[in-house]
Amino acid sequence: MGPALLIFLAVIIVPISMSIYYSFFQWNGVSAKVFNGFGNFNQLFQDPILWTSLKNSVYLTLGALFIQLPVGLFLAIVLGYKLRGSNFLKTIYFTPVMLSTAVLGILWGQIYDPNFGLLNNLLIQLGLDQWAHAWLGDEATALGSVIAVVAWQFIGFYIIVYFGALQGISDEVLEAARVEGAGEWKIIFSIQIPLIWPTITFTVLNCVINSLKYFDLIYIMTGGGPNNSSEVLASYMMKNAFRMMDFGYGSTISTFLLLFGLCLALIISKVLGRTGARFE
């Protein structure tokens, strides 16, 4: 107990406070820290790239919420019909969740490759030549291309989580509804979804929190580019802190990210809690 708590304190709680503390300084990590008051925050709110990153982070989060969760839930419900091979498919769906994001980023970089990539080739074969282009090199499509890969990797996670939750609903409830003449859609929307609402709340929160701090794929696939068009808050923070060696400003961004995430998490749990209460 003792040692675990101690290192936990040292490695999680103290650094968060330190990060907030550093955000008030001008500091490159080597020379002495210069107290800067709210100077960094002033700079933050006037930094156009910050707003681009914030907007992109929000897009990334919304993309995750509105692709991964509904598709995950849909496929989990379909798997619930216990068609032949369902168990095997479940295993397949979960596979990318277990794989290295760095490696998947490189792999998808090759799939999006303008010269020999799968995607452009597929489009050309389908006669959609005009759609083929450098997906990651184009400001208009860079972020969207990454969002698609995030979805590709994590839909399986939500399938498994929702499937597990749906299994918790007793068959008798569903049979009773059927005997009463309820249609399949009615069963899904009036029984299954309300009954797994706590799980849905958890997944929404989990998805938002993870999307906000998402970084790996952006860094590997686009590096935030081209021209900051796919920069998100986490990648912009890393860039400032470790590439430009501006630890003060980097910490300011991460403090901003933390506060933004906390507010969002609070709002979401309030709203979803209220919706959940309506079901009871």
Binding site: V11, P15, Y22, M237, A241
Partner: peptide
Amino acid sequence: GVYIIVPLFIF
């Protein structure tokens, strides 16, 4: 990760 990486690095 990203919330604490700077202080952790400095520490």
